[in-house]
């Protein structure tokens, strides 16, 4: 095997794309399935540990794994030559394969934008990394929480499209 073997690089980007995606969606599911339902049950004196210690660390892995997932995914699509067709959902190509991956890419991209442009900017204010009047924090936490729920919803068809691509 040559080091520059294009097939190997293709596999390598797919591997890194999937690893990053597990890190990203793993954190998303941790927030939605574990942390959010459990916080109200934590004794009040222990609760500050979540925003002070766990959230900043978890949000770092969450947003940067979202970034590396989309970067490796786009590189993969470029390398395989279907990026342009996938963006237009394969319309006119008569390829269910391209339409499927196109839907997956759009869902993933919406989720990535949600992380970087809605969840993270609002969480920075909620956690006090960016100063805002304290009375605004509940509203900003609500916006971030809803965006996180939207991503949980979208992750279900997104993973269907990504993992099911070989059925089409």
């Amino acid at each position: 095997m040559e080091l520059v073997d294009i097939t190997w690089w293709n596999f390598c980007f797919r591997w890194l794309h999937i690893l990053s995606g597990i890190m990203w969606i793993g954190h998303l599911y941790y927030f939605n399935f574990t942390q959010t339902p459990t916080v109200p049950k934590i004794p009040a004196e222990l609760r500050p540990a979540i925003p002070r210690f766990i959230m900043p660390e978890a949000l770092w892995w969450f947003r940067w794994s979202a970034m590396s997932t989309i970067v490796f995914g786009l590189l993969l699509a470029l390398m395989n030559g279907y990026l342009g067709q996938a963006i237009i959902l394969g319309i006119g190509s008569h390829s269910a394969h391209i339409t499927d991956i196109g839907f997956g890419m759009w869902l993933g991209t919406i989720m990535w934008a949600n992380v970087w442009f809605i969840i993270w900017p609002n969480q920075q204010k909620v956690l006090g990394m960016v100063e805002v009047p304290a009375d605004q924090r509940p509203r900003l936490a609500r916006i971030a929480g809803l965006a996180s729920r939207v991503n949980t919803l979208l992750s279900i068809p997104m993973v269907y499209c990504m993992a099911g691509v070989h059925f089409y």
Partner: peptide
Amino acid sequence: MKNPLDSLGQTVALGFVLTIVIVLLIHAIA
């Protein structure tokens, strides 16, 4: 009316419904 996204169960159920819609769209487009 309560927001369905406030319920984790309803969020997941909507995710499955959206999956079915997208599968139908894939077949309709391709």
